[in-house]
């Protein structure tokens, strides 16, 4: 049976992870680390903290850790009003050559596929460029395959309906032997970046950063750090969206102007 990590265990593990992944893991919210390590110990059937640390150091668990540590998106089109706002208010105002988007931390397919559907619906997908940082090689292959999570399919469809688009869900998603895939032609202009955005960034600035519900797992210090990095890669006049229950840190208020506060869209 897997064990649950103690506070002492967490203090032992975080420096090892920080060294391995070049991110200070002690800057994640403590209660999150406790839950997430317990989750990882459970799914990987970790027998002891010592064993876990050794396997992280040796690289044996690097991929498994990258796959299981970040929290996947809950669903496609989460907060449909955000996606409606993006479609109806933001996209029509973007200049022709500035349809560039960045997901600094893509953990699963849902946010990316939601954006691709919206871009296709508005007829701008061919001129769009979408950058995505994905830390796990296994997750990257899953996302590239276009497969969606079958457990979320009903929820995804319900959210899709709330968008009130002109097309049907089935126009974008194909059912093959009970598995649902996005139309892969929508992924033509997606460029995947390996690793995390603290170490790997697009080679250009972008118009829109989508970073919803990612900084809720950071402590205040790491949030400030993340916001500063992201702000550098947004064009002047570009946007960043964060989760509806997140706020830009006090320290970085000068970097971001509130644009549509109910959807937590900020302008740079």
């Amino acid at each position: 049976m897997a064990i649950a990590p103690t506070i002492h265990d967490i203090r032992e593990i975080t420096p090892v992870l920080s060294d391995k992944f070049k991110i200070d893991f002690s800057n994640y919210a403590f209660s999150f680390l406790r839950r997430r390590f317990a989750h990882i110990f459970n799914v990987l059937n970790v027998k002891s903290t010592k064993d876990f640390i050794e396997k992280i150091k040796s690289g044996e668990l690097t991929e498994d850790f990258s796959y299981h540590f970040p929290v996947p998106d809950t669903e496609m089109f989460r907060d449909p009003s955000f996606w409606r706002y993006l479609r109806l208010k933001i996209l029509p105002g973007l200049e022709e050559d500035k349809f560039s988007f960045w997901f600094p931390q893509l953990v699963s397919c849902e946010e990316l596929f939601s954006l691709l559907v919206i871009l296709k619906e508005e007829g701008v997908i061919d001129k769009a460029k979408v950058y995505c940082n994905v830390s796990s090689a296994k997750k990257l292959e899953e996302i590239k395959s276009g497969i969606t999570d079958s457990k979320k399919i009903e929820l995804n469809k319900q959210n899709f309906k709330r968008l009130e688009l002109n097309h049907h869900f089935e126009d974008y998603f194909i059912n093959e032997d009970g598995k649902v895939f996005i139309d892969k032609s929508l992924m033509t202009n997606v460029e995947f970046l390996k690793g995390n955005f603290f170490n790997e960034v697009p080679n250009t600035t972008v118009s829109f950063v989508i970073f919803r519900n990612r900084m809720i797992y950071y402590n205040a210090k790491l949030q400030v750090n993340a916001e500063e990095i992201l702000a550098k890669y947004i064009h002047k006049g570009g946007y960043m969206a964060i989760g509806i229950k997140e706020r830009i840190s006090q320290a970085n208020q000068s970097l971001f102007d509130e644009y549509e506060i109910s959807e937590k869209i900020y302008k740079v």
Binding site: S31, F32, R35, V71, D73, T74, I216, Y217, G243, K245
Partner: peptide
Amino acid sequence: EFDSTVSLSTE
């Protein structure tokens, strides 16, 4: 959290 702040999660 220990410091009486709220943390939210989409786990």
